[in-house]
Amino acid sequence: METIVRMSKKEDLPQLKALMLEYIVDFYRSPKPDDQKLDDLIAVLLQREQGLQFVAEKDGVLKGFATLYFTYSTTRADKITVMNDLYVAEDSRGTDMASGLFQACKKYTGDNRYAAMLWETAEDNHRAQRFYEKMGGHKGDFLTYSI
C-alpha cells in the first residue's frame, strides 16, 4: 500500500502523540513534555487556526508528521508559514514520506496565499540539509538564537 499524506485528525491523537514524543525525546534528546501540554498543543493544531499538522500514513500506521505554524513577517509585510517540524520514523526514512510531507506543507502555503514558508534544522543535521536543498530550499542569511 502506498503512503498517504493528509491533515491530522482527532482519531490520530494516540499515534501522533507517540510520534511526537519519539521526535522530541529520542531524536532531539529533549526532556519529555508534560502529557497535558502535548495534548493541548495537538488540540490547538487540530483547530487549524494557529497552525496544523500533516501526517504520513502507511497501512493505517502513522510514520511521520510535519507541523506548520501561521505567523507574519514584518520584512515581507505579509503572512508566512513556519514549518517547525518534519519528522519521519527511522524505519521509514529514505522513502517518499519526507518529500510528501514537505510538498503538502509547501502546497498548503501556496494555496492559502502565504508569502513564504520558512524552516530551520540543526546545524549538524546534514541529512536534513541535503534533503531541504533537494526540495529547492536554500540557507537563509539569518542565524537563530534562543533564550
Rank of each mutant, 00 (worst) to 15 (best):
I80L: 13
V44S: 14
F65E: 02
G51D: 01
F54S: 12
F27W: 00
K58V: 13
I24D: 01
D96N: 08
V25I: 11
S30Y: 14
V61I: 14
K79V: 06
K79I: 01
E57L: 01
T81N: 12
A104M: 05
L45M: 08
E49F: 09
A116D: 13
F102T: 05
K106C: 03
I80S: 11
V88T: 09
R130Y: 10
I80G: 12
F54E: 10
G60H: 11
R113I: 09
G110K: 14
T121E: 03
D40T: 11
V88F: 12
D39R: 08
E22A: 03
Y132W: 06
T71M: 10
D85E: 15
K37G: 04
V61G: 00
Y23Q: 03
K37D: 06
A66P: 07
L118P: 00
Y72H: 12
N125E: 10
E133M: 05
R93N: 05
G100D: 05
T81E: 02
L52E: 07
T74C: 05
R130Q: 11
Y132I: 14
T75S: 01
D26M: 07
I24T: 04
A122F: 10
E123C: 08
A115L: 08
D59G: 15
T81V: 13
D59K: 14
V61T: 13
Y23W: 06
A43N: 04
D34W: 00
H138V: 07
E22Y: 01
D96T: 13
D26W: 01
T109C: 15
I24Y: 07
Q129M: 14
D91I: 00
P31D: 06
P31S: 08
D34R: 03
C105N: 10
K106R: 13
D34E: 09
A115I: 08
G51W: 02
L41W: 12
A115R: 11
V82N: 12
E22V: 02
T74R: 07
K63H: 05
M83H: 05
G100H: 07
D141H: 08
A122G: 14
Y72D: 09
I42P: 13
K134C: 09
G137F: 09
F131R: 04
P33W: 02
V25C: 14
F54A: 11
D141W: 10
K107H: 14
V25P: 02
R29Q: 15
G51N: 04
Y69I: 02
